[in-house]
Design a protein around this nucleic acid. Structure first.
Lengths: 195, 195
DNA sequence: GTCTATACCGTGATAGAC
DNA sequence: GTCTATCACGGTATAGAC
């Protein structure tokens, strides 16, 4: 993490550093000492910018959730044949996940030990719920296979998309690489591995 | 967690309790105090059965890894058309994951903070590697779609399978339910969501 | 095999100087 | 805005009685 403009921190630039460490060590495995070393300032200086460790978590997962819920408000997610909307949401979720990688990664890993974590899990469930309805609608329109239950299909679909955080690391190529990965996700999810 | 025979602990029965707590709170989020409360004995009594917290982690992930590598030694994984072997490994991985749910869940969540965790990650990569070779072989035999890279396909396939730990909870029905889930995983992975 | 008591250290967070 | 010094607490682990 390199500072971009000033060598003093804003809450947001500090957040960027903190989220990296959280993802490397896990939230619970990260101490304020770890954060202070990564940020290059003392523990107590961190408290000048944020109220504490949990506020950093809160800001991070909030940002991830904003990105995800933003998808559902796009016109392409709101009208048209359900299977098309589902395809759009699938692709965009994969892209947002890569664009906001560290924030979404953190969101997907919260366990529910604190109030913030439980709130994040709740909102995430809401998102899953909304997509699940899309899957049901597409099944009702006859565009999805009928031998796998909608709820189960949704879960496996998300499992595949979300797993991207386990290995994706952005490289110099930027957005084009992200579109390639998103394409692969959509192809495999809808049409499978088989030739 | 209920004790089955005696109301004294063996390392293994204690492990079963510990792994539940680890999965609920995360390994780093679990203190010996948490474990002692869940086991119904004092903190110091735990040290009579195991050397410490990390030994519990070690035993747990070892058990998960044994289950996974066992799949690759089955005759069905060793000979035949690659796509058939891949299908077998996919189904069995899903089943083992459900049979050994708490142990595999823990394995999939280690972050690499301790020696034990790094060893577990290493062995897990070996397993992924072995399956990746199967995917490559199946692609070379022309049985997998050629417009998605083998490495990427392997990762997404595993992402889908592994995500089962996020929601699967065993119920009274036992094995039949597991086979149903495994069937759904294989169907979606190989033939996709689309009707 | 389990307990109470305790050692010792790292934790999140605060006070107050510069 | 950053620092050093410090606090109260909870962490892992051990000693030794029963």
């Amino acid at each position: 993490m390199t500072m971009s403009k000033r060598d003093t921190y804003t809450p947001d630039s500090l957040l960027a550093v903190a989220v990296e460490v959280f993802n490397e060590r896990g939230y619970d495995g990260t101490s304020m000492e770890h954060l202070s070393r990564a940020a290059g300032i003392s523990k107590s200086s961190i408290y000048h910018h944020v109220r504490g460790k949990e506020e950093l978590l809160n800001r991070a997962v909030g940002r991830a959730l904003d990105g995800l819920f933003g998808i559902l408000e796009q016109p392409e997610a709101l009208s048209g044949r359900a299977v098309q909307r589902l395809e759009y949401v699938t692709r965009r979720t994969a892209v947002v996940l890569m664009e906001e990688l560290p924030y979404v990664t953190l969101l997907l890993r919260v366990r529910g030990n604190t109030k913030t974590e439980r709130w994040a899990m709740e909102r995430r469930r809401e998102f899953d719920q909304r997509v699940s309805e899309l899957v049901k609608a597409a099944a009702a329109e006859g565009d999805l296979r009928s031998d796998v239950e909608a709820r189960l299909a949704t879960r496996l679909l998300f499992g595949m998309i979300n797993s991207v955080v386990e290995w994706y690391r952005p490289d110099a190529k930027g957005g084009s690489e992200r579109e390639q990965v998103a394409d692969a996700v959509v192809r495999l999810a809808f049409d499978g591995l088989r030739a």
